[in-house]
Amino acid sequence: MIVPLAHVLILAGIIFALGLACVIAWRTNVIMMLIGIEIMLNAAMLVAVGGSRLWGATDGQVFALMIMAMTSAEVSLALALVVYLHRRKKTVNADEFDSMKG
């Protein structure tokens, strides 16, 4: 282990806090909210890889890979939704999407 695990966890915590701040602050822009989610998932991957290194187990790396595959599925769906919503309302402002059609 090149650095103590606590430092890796602190770095991951800082990245996660930045991603959370991005999601909360940019509530009006769907694309920036998705970017914030990406940042938070990266922090989670850093924790998994750091733990995998500490214990010498492969599980953390496998889990990081699973997060990556999950993210690519999630982003493709979310961006398809953004395109769909933009086609309907001509905006990506999340406040505009306030009506349901039953």
Binding site: I2, V8, L11, M45, L46, V49, G50, S52, R53, Q61, A64, L65, M68
Partner: peptide
């Protein structure tokens, strides 16, 4: 690069 330093080249 941090992942590489932590011993996860594939990730």
């Amino acid at each position: 690069v941090i992942f590489y330093l932590l011993g996860a080249p594939l990730v």
